[in-house]
Design a protein around this nucleic acid. Structure first.
Lengths: 216, 216
DNA sequence: GACATAGCGGAACGGCTCATTCCGTTCTGG
DNA sequence: CCAGAACGGAATGAGCCGTTCCGCTATGTC
C-alpha cells in the first residue's frame, strides 16, 4: 500500500486524476471570478484538461458553480472569523474587508448566485456569513471607529462596488481594489478621522483609453 | 404649411415617425443602461415599436450603440461644464460626480465602449470629457478640499464602482448610488474633514437575500 | 501477459439566442 | 385614388454553448 501510494503521487492514472480534481477547481475559480458566465470549455482549457474530465466530476455546469460558491461562502466565514479575533475593532473591520476583497469572495458568492439553484447549505452559510459580518461592523461602531449610519446591508454593496473593478490581470486588479478600498475605508471611518494614505497607484491613461481603441 | 405642421404634431404617419425617433432613442438608453448587452428586440419592445422601425433608423445595432454613446459623451461634457461654473471648488466637484452618477453617464459611455468601433468624434469627446473632469478635480485639490493623492484616472474607477450598483428599478438604484457616492465623497474629502451624513437608505435584507431564492 | 476498464480528449449534437432581412399591410400626402 | 413611406412581426441564418458520445490509452488485477 505504501509503495503504491508513493507511485500514485508521482504518476499513475489515479494520481493524475486526483491532481486534476484540484486543477479543475482552481481553474474554475479563476475563470468564473474573471467572467461569471464564461463557457465551461474555458474552464477545461484553463485547467489543461478535456471537457470530459470536467463532466466526470460534476454532472453539470450548475453543479460546478454550486460547489464553487460553497467554497466561496466557507472562505467568507473563515475570513470573518479570523477578523473577529483581531483585538482592535477598527483593525478587525479593516482586515475583514481587505480579506473579502483580496480573495474576491464576493465574485464567488453573490455574482454566482442566481446561476444555480441554491441548496439549504448555501442558505445556511450565507446566513452565518451575514451574521459574522454584522458582528464585526457593530463592534466597530460601538467603539466609535466606524460611522454609525452604516448598516450591515451596506457591506455587500461595498464588496459589489469593489468587485466591479475588473481591469486586466489579477495582480493589477488586486492592487486597484486595495486602492479604492482605502477610499471606502476613509469614508466609513467615523466622522472627522482620516484613515490614511492611499496605497497602490491609479490606473494609467493608457489602460483607461484602451476601451476606445477597438478597430474591428 | 402651418396647418399641415399642426396636423403632423397630432397624427399623421410622418409625425408618428418623428415621435418614434425619440421613443426609440429613449428606450434604447433605458434598456442598454440597465443591461449593456440586451438584445435589440428588447429595445423595440420597450419603445413600443416593431423591429423594422428600429432598423429604418439605424443600419445595425452597432450604429445604435455608437449614437447612444455619443449622446452620453455629450451629456458628460455638459454636466462637467455646468459643474465647473459652481464657485466653490468642493461643491463643484460634488455636483459633478452627482451629475455623472445620477444620469448614469458611465453606463452610456465606458460600459458601451468596446461594443462598437469608435469614431474620431467619440475619441475627441472622450478626451474633452477627461480634460474637463481633470480640471474639476485639480481645482478641488488646489484649495485643499479634495485629498491630494487622487489622480484624474481615479475618477472613472469611481463611476465604475457606482455604476455596478444595479438593484431592481431605476428609482431605487439612484437612491442607492447617491448613498454610496456619499461614502466615496467622505473618503475623497481632504484629510480630517467629514463630508456629512449619508443620504438614502441601505438595501433591505429581503433585497439582498433575493439572490439566494432561485428555485428553478 | 492479457484484459476489463477508469479516465480522458475532443468531435458531434441539439437547442437556443440574436442580429438582420423579408414580406404583407396600413395609412398618408398629393 | 394611388405610389410609396412606415411599420409589425415572422423567417432566416449564423454562432455559441451545454451536454453527450466515441475511440483511445495506460493501469491495476488475475
Amino acid at each position: 500500500m505504501t509503495e503504491q501510494d508513493v507511485r500514485d503521487v508521482l504518476n499513475g492514472r489515479r494520481a493524475q486524476a486526483a491532481r486534476n480534481d484540484g486543477a479543475i477547481l482552481a481553474a474554475a475559480r479563476k475563470v468564473f471570478v474573471a467572467e461569471p458566465d464564461a463557457p465551461i470549455g474555458a474552464v477545461a482549457r484553463a485547467a489543461g484538461v478535456g471537457i470530459s474530465a470536467l463532466y466526470r466530476r460534476y454532472p453539470s455546469k450548475e453543479a460546478l458553480l454550486a460547489t464553487l460558491c460553497l467554497d466561496g461562502l466557507r472562505q467568507f466565514v473563515a475570513i470573518a472569523q479570523t477578523a473577529r479575533e483581531v483585538t482592535d475593532p477598527w483593525e478587525g473591520f479593516v482586515e475583514f474587508l481587505r480579506g473579502i476583497v483580496d480573495a474576491d469572495v464576493h465574485s464567488l458568492t453573490v455574482c454566482l448566485a442566481g446561476r444555480f439553484t441554491p441548496t439549504p447549505e448555501h442558505r445556511a452559510l450565507a446566513m452565518q456569513a451575514g451574521a459574522l459580518a454584522d458582528g464585526i461592523l457593530r463592534r466597530g461602531q460601538q467603539v466609535g471607529a466606524v460611522r454609525a449610519d452604516i448598516e450591515s446591508t451596506d457591506l455587500p454593496m461595498i464588496y459589489e462596488q469593489l468587485a466591479a473593478i475588473r481591469h486586466s490581470d489579477a495582480e493589477h486588479i488586486r492592487e486597484l481594489r486595495r486602492r479604492y478600498l482605502d477610499v471606502h475605508l476613509a469614508g466609513l471611518r467615523a466622522v472627522a478621522i482620516s484613515y490614511g494614505e492611499l496605497t497602490g497607484r491609479p490606473p494609467t491613461q493608457a489602460e483607461l483609453g484602451a476601451r476606445w481603441n477597438r478597430t474591428t
